[in-house]
Design a protein around this nucleic acid. Structure first.
Length: 887
RNA sequence: GGGCGGUUAGCUCAGUUGGUAGAGCAACUCGUUUACACCGAGUAGGUCACAAGUUCGAGUCUUGUACCGCCCACCA
C-alpha cells in the first residue's frame, strides 16, 4: 500500500478486519507458559451466554485490553484468559422462553433433551460473544478460552464440592430459603433485590380465645400469611400486654389457636400496636423467632406461590395475591379488619425474573461461610489485594466480616453442574464423589436432581481456567493473576467468592488488584436496560464510529471512579481524534518519502521547537507508561490527546512545514519519525487498529529495522537516547506561543482576515534574553502568525496607527494605517487594562499581607512577586498606549 | 436507619501532594493557507450546591445542611 495517496478518512472497517486476522494468524496473543519474563495475567470476567455483550462489557474490554497490550509491549509475558459463563437461571429462562414460543416445554423434552437444546444455545451465543470481543480488538487468548461447564472445569467443580463436603463446610439443611416461583428455584440472598413499592398495612384483630370480646391487634403487609401464624409476639416489657402473655388467641377465618408470647427481638412496642404476628414458615424474622420459642412451622404457601391444603378450603389453590384480596374482604365482612394504612415497603424480588420472592422452608445445600471468610478478609485488610478506587475496599470485605450468612448453593434447575450426591432408597446420602458411583453398586440410588448456583462455578474462575486442579504450567506461571477488572455490582456475588475459594484451595490470593470500572449509563443518567430498550449494542457503535474511537472513549472515562453517561456524540469526538491522528500521520509519512533510516539525529543541531517537542514527548511517554502500573488510563488518554492534537499538530507540524523544504529536511524528518513512532506505540493500547495500520504499513516500511514485526508485539519505545526534559526549551516556547497568540488576537480584533498576511509586527522588550529568543525564532513567529517581517527592538517606537498588546514581558504592536478604529482600539485597551487591574488587585492583596509573606513558602512568594512585576509592567505599557491614543 | 459517591462554563466531565479553575461538545466571529472543514485561528462563558471552621491562602482539608444516585440492613 502506498501511503502517499491515502484517503483523508481512516477506513476503520476494512482495517479492523485485516489486523484482527493478522494478529490471529500470527498467534500473538497465545503466550507460552514459560520463560523468564515477568508475567501479567488477567482473567476476563466471563460474560453470560444468555446473550450478547453490552456497553459495560465493552468498557471492561477497553480497560483490560489497554493494560494487556501495554504490558505485552513492555516485555511482560501476558495472558488474558477469556471465556463464558453458563449462567444457570438466566440461560435456562431464555431457552424455556424459546421452547414456549415453539409450543413445547422443558418438561416435554425431558432433562436430556432440554440440555441438548441449551448446549445448542450456548454454542451459538458463546461464539457470538467471542466475535464481539475480537471486533473490539480484544487481544485475549482465544485458544485457551474456557467455559464454566467444559470438561476440565466440571472436574474442578466436583473436586471443590467433594472437598468441602468432606470437610463439613458443605452441608444439607432444612431452612427458610428465598424461593423464586417464576423460575421455580431457590435463590441466594445476593440474588434477591428489594426496592420500595407501594403497599398497605392491614391492622387485624385477633380475638382472645377465653374471651372473644377482647383481643389483640396485629399489623401486617401480607395478610395471607396469617393462616400460617404460630404465635403473636409482644415485647416482654410492654405494660399493655403483660396480662396477655401466655394466653391464646384465635386466628380469624381459620379458627386455629395460637399463643401470645413475649419476644423482645421481634416485637417493637413503638411500632403499630406493639404486637406482631409470627409466621415462621414465610418470614425470615419470624423463622428466627420460631427457632427461639420453639414454635410450630406451618407452611401455607407452596412452590407455585399458591395457598396449599393447610388453609380453609375457600382459599386453597389461590395465588397469594388473590388469596390476600379474598382474606381482606372476609376480614372486613366479619369485622376483624380494624384499619388499613398506605404503606411503603420493600418486598424481595428475584434479580433474574423479577418475581416476588416467597420465603419457604426447604431442604437445601449450604456452604458454611464462617469457615472460609477469614483468610479472604485478611488478604484485603492487609493490602495484599488492592481495590481501585480504594473506597471499594470496604465494600469488598464488609460482607465477609459482618453480614456473612451461609450460602445456599443448590438450585432447582436443569442447566448447570448437577450436585454429585446420590441417595439410597431411604433418601439418605449414600455417595458423594468426584467420579460417578459404580453402576452396579448404585442401582437403587438416585442422584440429587439439583444443580449448583452459577456463582459456585464462577468462584473458581481465575484458577480453574488455568487448569486447576491439575498443576499445569499455566497455573504455575500465571497465578495469582495480576488484575481483575469488574463491574461494581458483583463485588460480593463474585469477587469475594473467588477470594475465599482461592485461599482455601491454593492458599493464594486470586489477583493483586481489583479494578472497579464505571457503570455506563444512558444519556439521562439511568441504568441501561435491555427490556426498556435503552441498552446499546457495542457492535453498533463499532460499526458506526470504529473500534478505536469506542475503546479510546471508554478507556478515558471508565476508571475515573465516576459513573458515566453515554451519548453518541461523545464517540463522535473520539472518532475525530482518530481522523486527526490519521491525517497527521499521513502528512508525516508523505514527507518521509525520501527518509533515510540510517540518518541519526544530530542532537547538537536541535532548534528550540525540536527541543520542546522532544521534551514534551518524553513527558508523554512517562505518563502513559506510568498509567499501565497505576491504572490511570484517563490521564494517559487525555495526555495523548493534548500532545497529539495541540502540541504536535497545531504547533510542531506547522513549524516543520517550511523547514521540510530547506536544508534541515533530514533533521526534521528524523524528529517527525521519532515522534510518530513513539506516539503510535503509546496509542496502541487504546487504539490498536489505527496505530497498527500506520505503523506496520507506514513506519515499518520506511525503516524495516524497527524492532518488532507488528506494532502489537513491538517493544515499548525507548527514549533514553533523547534529551532529558528541557525546562528551558519549554518556557521559551511558552513565550513564543504566547506572543503568536497575542499577534493572532490583535489581527482578529482589528479585522484582518486569517488568510491575509500582515506586513510587519513590532516586538519590543527591555530584556536582552527576550530579544535573543525572538531574534532566533523570527521565522517561526512569522509562519505561525502570518506576518511578513518582524521589527524587534528594546523600545517600542511611536507608531502612527497600531493595535497594541503584550505577551509576558514583550510589547507587541500591529501597525495598520487606516485599519484601526481609534475608538474601538481604546475600548479594547481599556478592557485589557481592566482585566489586569483585577488580577493585580488579587496579587497585591496577598503581597501586602505580612502573614502571607511570612508564612507561605519562599518559592510561592517569589512566584507571586514576579507575576506582580510582570503584570504591573504590562499594565504600565497598555496604559501608556491608551494615553497616547487619547492625546 | 447505616454506609459510600456526586453537586465545577449552556451540556458531558477533568482538576495528582491546599498556591487562586481546564477539556470536549454547543454558541459567536474570521478563514477553504496542498495533512485534516471529522479542519485552522480567535471570542465569550464559572462568587467550583449552600453555611461555618482550620489556614497567610480552600474546588481541594474538617463539620453541618440541601438535593441526586448507589449499596446494606430492615418496623411487622
Amino acid at each position: 500500500m502506498s501511503l502517499l495517496n491515502l484517503p483523508t478518512r481512516f477506513d476503520f472497517g476494512q482495517t479492523e478486519a485485516k489486523w484482527t486476522q493478522v494478529w490471529k494468524t500470527k498467534d500473538y496473543f497465545h503466550p507460552q507458559a514459560s520463560g523468564d519474563a515477568p508475567s501479567f495475567s488477567i482473567a476476563f470476567p466471563p460474560p453470560n451466554v444468555t446473550g450478547v455483550l453490552h456497553m459495560g462489557h465493552a468498557a471492561n474490554i477497553s480497560i483490560q485490553d489497554a493494560l494487556i497490550r501495554g504490558k505485552r509491549k513492555l516485555g511482560f509475558n501476558t495472558l488474558w484468559t477469556v471465556g463464558t459463563d453458563h449462567a444457570g437461571i438466566g440461560t435456562q429462562v431464555m431457552v424455556e422462553k424459546q421452547l414456549k414460543a415453539e409450543g413445547t416445554s422443558r418438561q416435554e423434552l425431558g432433562r436430556e433433551g432440554f440440555l441438548e437444546r441449551v448446549w445448542q444455545w450456548k454454542d451459538e451465543y458463546g461464539s457470538r460473544i467471542f466475535e464481539q470481543m475480537m471486533r473490539l480488538g480484544a487481544s485475549g487468548d482465544f485458544k485457551r478460552a474456557r467455559f464454566t461447564m467444559d470438561e476440565g472445569y466440571s472436574t474442578a467443580i466436583r473436586k471443590v464440592f467433594v472437598d468441602w463436603y468432606q470437610a463439613g463446610i458443605i452441608y444439607r439443611a432444612n431452612r427458610l430459603v428465598n424461593w423464586d416461583p417464576a423460575s421455580q428455584t431457590v435463590l441466594s440472598d445476593l440474588e434477591v433485590e428489594s426496592k420500595e413499592e407501594k403497599g398497605s398495612l392491614w391492622h387485624i384483630r385477633y380475638p382472645l380465645s377465653e374471651d372473644p370480646s377482647q383481643g389483640i391487634i396485629v399489623a401486617t403487609t401480607r395478610p395471607e400469611t396469617m393462616l400460617g401464624d404460630s404465635a403473636v409476639a409482644v415485647h416482654p416489657d410492654d405494660s399493655r400486654y403483660q396480662h396477655l402473655i401466655g394466653k391464646t388467641v384465635t386466628i380469624p377465618l381459620s379458627g386455629r389457636q395460637i399463643p401470645i408470647i413475649a419476644d423482645g427481638e421481634v416485637a417493637d412496642p413503638s411500632f403499630g400496636s406493639g404486637a406482631v404476628k409470627i409466621t415462621p414458615a414465610h418470614d425470615f424474622n419470624d423463622w428466627e423467632c420460631g427457632q427461639r420459642n420453639d414454635l410450630e412451622i406451618m407452611q401455607v404457601i407452596d412452590i407455585n406461590a399458591c395457598m396449599n391444603d393447610k388453609v380453609p378450603a375457600q382459599y386453597q389453590g389461590l395465588k397469594v395475591i388473590k388469596a390476600r384480596e379474598a382474606i381482606v374482604t372476609d376480614l372486613e365482612t366479619e369485622g376483624f379488619l380494624v384499619q388499613v394504612d398506605d404503606h411503603i415497603y420493600q418486598p424481595g424480588r428475584s434479580s433474574r425474573t423479577g418475581a416476588l420472592v416467597q420465603p419457604l422452608p426447604l431442604v437445601q445445600w449450604w456452604v458454611d461461610m464462617k469457615r472460609l471468610a477469614d483468610p479472604a478478609r485478611d488478604a484485603v485488610r492487609e493490602g495484599r489485594i488492592k481495590y481501585v478506587p480504594e473506597r471499594y475496599t470496604d465494600e469488598g470485605v464488609e460482607w465477609l466480616e459482618k453480614d456473612i450468612r451461609d450460602w445456599c448453593i443448590s438450585r432447582q434447575l436443569w442447566w448447570g453442574h448437577q450436585i454429585p450426591v446420590w441417595y439410597d432408597e431411604q433418601g439418605e446420602i449414600a455417595f458423594v464423589g468426584t467420579e460417578d458411583p459404580d453402576p452396579e453398586q448404585s442401582q437403587n440410588w438416585t442422584r440429587d436432581e439439583d444443580v449448583l448456583d452459577t456463582w459456585f462455578s464462577s468462584a473458581l474462575w481465575p484458577f480453574a481456567t488455568l487448569g486447576w486442579p491439575e498443576q499445569t504450567p499455566e497455573l504455575k506461571h500465571f497465578y495469582p493473576t495480576t488484575v481483575l477488572s469488574t463491574a461494581r455490582d458483583i463485588l460480593k456475588l463474585w469477587v469475594a467468592r473467588m477470594n475465599f475459594s482461592s485461599h482455601y484451595f491454593l492458599d493464594k490470593i486470586p489477583f493483586e488488584h481489583v479494578l472497579v470500572h464505571a457503570t455506563i449509563l444512558t444519556k439521562d443518567g439511568k441504568r441501561m436496560s435491555k427490556s426498556k430498550g435503552t441498552g446499546i449494542d457495542p457492535l453498533d457503535m463499532v460499526n458506526k464510529y470504529g473500534a478505536d474511537a469506542c475503546r479510546y472513549w471508554l478507556a478515558q472515562v471508565s476508571l475515573t471512579g465516576q459513573d458515566v453517561r453515554f451519548a453518541d456524540d461523545k464517540l463522535e469526538s473520539s472518532q475525530h481524534f482518530v481522523t486527526k491522528i490519521w491525517n497527521a500521520s499521513r502528512f508525516v509519512l508523505m514527507n518521509l518519502d525520501d527518509f533515510d533510516p540510517n540518518y541519526s539525529l544530530d542532537l547538537t543541531q536541535l532548534k528550540l521547537s525540536d527541543r520542546w517537542i522532544l521534551s514534551r514527548l518524553r513527558q508523554l511517554h512517562t505518563v502513559v507508561t506510568q498509567s499501565m502500573d497505576d491504572f490511570s488510563l484517563h490521564h494517559a488518554t487525555r495526555e495523548l490527546y493534548q500532545f497529539i492534537w495541540t502540541e504536535f499538530c497545531d504547533w510542531y507540524l506547522e513549524l516543520a512545514k517550511p523547514r521540510l523544504q530547506g536544508e534541515q529536511r533530514q533533521q526534521v524528518q528524523a524528529i517527525l519519525f521519532t515522534c510518530l513512532n513513539t506516539m503510535l506505540h503509546l496509542l496502541h493500547p487504546f487504539m490498536p487498529f489505527v496505530s497498527e495500520e500506520l505503523w506496520s504499513e507506514g513506519l515499518k516500511k520506511l525503516d524495516p529495522n524497527l524492532p518488532g514485526e507488528h506494532l502489537a508485539i513491538a517493544p515499548w519505545p525507548i527514549i533514553d537516547h533523547l534529551p532529558a526534559v528541557d525546562n528551558e526549551a519549554e518556557s521559551q516556547m511558552d513565550l513564543l506561543m504566547e506572543t503568536v497568540r497575542v499577534i493572532r488576537n490583535l489581527r482578529m480584533e482589528v479585522g484582518v482576515a486569517s488568510n491575509k498576511s500582515v506586513e510587519s509586527v513590532y516586538l519590543a522588550s527591555t530584556e536582552a534574553t527576550d530579544r535573543e529568543i525572538l531574534n532566533a525564532s523570527q521565522g517561526m513567529i512569522c509562519t505561525l502568525a502570518k506576518v511578513d517581517q518582524l521589527q524587534i527592538s528594546s523600545e517600542m517606537p511611536e507608531l502612527e496607527q497600531a493595535a497594541h498588546g503584550v505577551s509576558q514581558t514583550i510589547q507587541v504592536a500591529l501597525p495598520l494605517a487606516g485599519l484601526i478604529d481609534l475608538d474601538k482600539e481604546s475600548e479594547r485597551l481599556e478592557r485589557e487594562i481592566g482585566k489586569l487591574d483585577k488580577d493585580l488587585a488579587g496579587l497585591k492583596q496577598r503581597l501586602e499581607n505580612p502573614k502571607f509573606v511570612d508564612r507561605a513558602p519562599a518559592d510561592v512568594v517569589e512566584q507571586v512577586r514576579s507575576q506582580m512585576q510582570e503584570l504591573t509592567y504590562q499594565h504600565q505599557l497598555l496604559t501608556e498606549r491608551l494615553q497616547s491614543l487619547k492625546s
